[in-house]
Write a protein that binds this DNA or RNA. Sequence first.
DNA 1: GGTGCTATTTGCCATATGACAAATGAAATG
DNA 2: CATTTCATTTGTCATATGGCAAATAGCACC
Lengths: 188, 188
Amino acid sequence: MEKLIDFLLEFGHLNQQQIDLIKRKASPLVLEKGTYFSEAGKIPKRVAFIQTGILRVCYYNSKGDEITKYFIEENNFAVDINSYTQKIPSSEYVQAVTDCTLLVFSKESFDELFNTIIAWEGIINKITEKALIEKLNKLSPMLAEDASTRYLTFLEKFPGLANRIPLSYLASYLGITQSSLSRIRRNI
Amino acid sequence: MEKLIDFLLEFGHLNQQQIDLIKRKASPLVLEKGTYFSEAGKIPKRVAFIQTGILRVCYYNSKGDEITKYFIEENNFAVDINSYTQKIPSSEYVQAVTDCTLLVFSKESFDELFNTIIAWEGIINKITEKALIEKLNKLSPMLAEDASTRYLTFLEKFPGLANRIPLSYLASYLGITQSSLSRIRRNI
DNA sequence: GGTGCTATTTGCCATATGACAAATGAAATG
DNA sequence: CATTTCATTTGTCATATGGCAAATAGCACC
């Protein structure tokens, strides 16, 4: 659990008693590659800290294509933020892209931490804000780049991941077809 | 100032005394079309609430192209969030796209509100989170759409704006060249 | 009204990417 | 080992978009 605690401490102070409480509220969960952590149509009731592995958030657009909205890396919280916050059924999936080991908080546990630990809300807000800004900063330049550049940038940002995940995940994240991505790979 | 107060009250409770304090800390500012609210290279020291008008956040990419990252509409806070939060010199500009009337808070005033009004931090965090999620939700689908679809979506999301702003702002937001946008317009 | 200056449109051509289908490869199952 | 199923690559062709340059339009200023 030390990864989680270290991560939290980057964003605010916690005393030993608070740290112990947080540890007691977290349950380990192994999520196999391909399985879902939360699903469209349901109201998400859990938050996860990713110890190892990678998740992705995806959805189906109006044409029926599956779109990978973003990947979530190790040492981050994974949550379907659109619907967790608003308590509405989700339109997105959160799925394990590789085998993952998570620390899971139930919504009740998480809420209890809000009520018990003064600094908790501030820490979580900082983490949330930082994660959203990062996603925005990754996504924004992609619109102005061609497909090869987007792929090369992905290789830098997620080293080692490209060859471990289905082509379709990556292609839909980059906004290109599988065939195009396959060709781009060949020519690089 | 009522627009500002109404907006804040959507996200939390404030008593009359707090509302008066907030009003005293806000200064009106008229920003003419084209002028900058904050600039790359500087550390932003102000936050603005947009009463009327539209701003945009833009930057120059490695190729030297000017990229419009997103537009900020009326009834929202405008801030260079990347560098305001982290207190580092910005790499982005915040610019008036139309004539704007703003309510401006200095960093000191804003910090004072954090220290004086218990609910302030929660309200601002909710506003920030919501704004970031919205931007992400707008941007993400664009990668999978062709240029015409992106333009049509823009017309829906920002009715009346397309014809009032330079072609270059819009083209760089949509991730296409000015020529292409011009042609798309003709064909629709 | 004439003169610049900038923004936008248009033309021409090259090329990246999409659509679709077929071929190949890889992995699971009996 | 054969069979099935799914993922990836490849081929062919159509088309959207970019790059570049020229033409036009719009606008400020004298």
